[in-house]
């Protein structure tokens, strides 16, 4: 965004330049940077094309209804069956569970950081949150495997603690950083006048936060929730380590397999139709993520407008 003055200078200056090489050089640089600029678009197209090309054949062979709504996944059986409904439902329930546990906790924590804590406490919490965001997912998986899985087993008296519930607990923790930082941004963007007005009308500080600030930050918090959904749906490694990885229909204390872990767990030894079916699972996952992305974009746009 240059001002008009610059454009003017630029126009005046141009005829003065007599070095044709520098003009060509500028054009080359411009072209190279243009290529860099559009490379993000190229990557998105590349990913989409490769996923569609490798994912569609198996869906066609299995039949889209059998594939999406088949309840049995037995890819290595003598008569293989490729129904991914268990994966889809597990991903949906697992994500929903993680949102139910993680989002309230995250929003309350964001409220603490923005409205209640003093500077020093707020800095400690925000440091903790950014550290949480940086911890690799396999580390969460390891802690889940060693701490949460045995705990779930002994508390609920189960034969095996690696189940949907453990996965939900781990996912709930893992989505916290995204939910917190997004809600924090939204809460900070609430105009001071709203809160001052509420206080002046006699509401207490806490009432102001919950009845004025949070509703005012609604669309940003919605974006935080959607971002959390995206993180939870896409998480693979940590979930793989705590969910038991058996293609059951989901039940809270059953070993389950998510869309992500379905792709990861069989890829290394798969072949033929089984392998292609895994690509199709990835395509379904990609479709989910794209839908979530679109919703997120709309939510963020709304937030920016308001």
């Amino acid at each position: 965004m240059q001002s008009k003055a610059v454009t003017a200078i630029y126009i005046i200056k141009k005829p003065l330049r007599e070095d044709p090489f520098s003009d060509i050089f500028e054009k080359i640089v411009h072209a190279l940077l243009g290529i860099c600029g559009f490379i993000a678009i190229a990557f998105v197209i590349l990913i989409t094309v490769f996923l569609v090309l490798s994912g569609v054949p198996a869906i066609r062979e299995i039949g889209i209804a059998d594939f999406l709504f088949g309840t049995k996944w037995a890819s290595t059986a003598a008569e293989p069956s490729y129904g991914i409904l268990p994966f889809i439902l597990t991903s949906v329930f697992g994500t929903a569970g993680a949102i139910v546990l993680g989002v309230p906790l995250g929003i309350l924590c964001a409220v603490f950081m923005t409205k209640i804590s003093g500077k020093r406490f707020g800095a400690i919490v925000s440091g903790a949150v950014s550290l949480m965001a940086g911890i690799p997912s396999v580390v969460y998986g390891l802690v889940g495997m060693i701490v949460i899985v045995p705990a779930v087993r002994s508390i609920f008296g189960l034969p095996d603690g690696a189940n949907l519930f453990s996965a939900i607990l781990v996912l709930a923790v893992m989505i916290l950083p995204s939910v917190i930082s997004m809600s924090e941004t939204a809460l900070r963007a609430v105009p001071k006048e709203y809160e001052e007005g509420s206080l002046a009308l006699g509401a207490t500080g806490t009432e102001t936060i919950f009845k004025v600030s949070l509703p005012a930050a609604k669309s940003g918090i919605l974006a935080a929730v959607v971002l959390g959904v995206g993180r939870a749906v896409g998480e693979a490694m940590a979930v793989m380590m705590v969910s038991g990885n058996v293609p059951n229909m989901p039940g809270i204390f059953r070993s389950v397999r998510f869309l992500t872990t379905a792709v990861a767990s069989e890829m290394s030894y798969s072949s033929g139709l089984q392998r292609q079916a895994l690509f199709s699972v990835a395509l379904v996952l990609f479709a989910f993520i794209m839908i979530i992305n679109i919703i997120l974009n709309i939510a963020v746009k709304k937030e920016n407008k308001s």
Binding site: I41, V44, I47, G230, V233, A236, F286, I292
Partner: peptide
Amino acid sequence: AAETLSGIPSII
């Protein structure tokens, strides 16, 4: 496109 890329999960 960049936002889309940052939303794609690493397993993909």
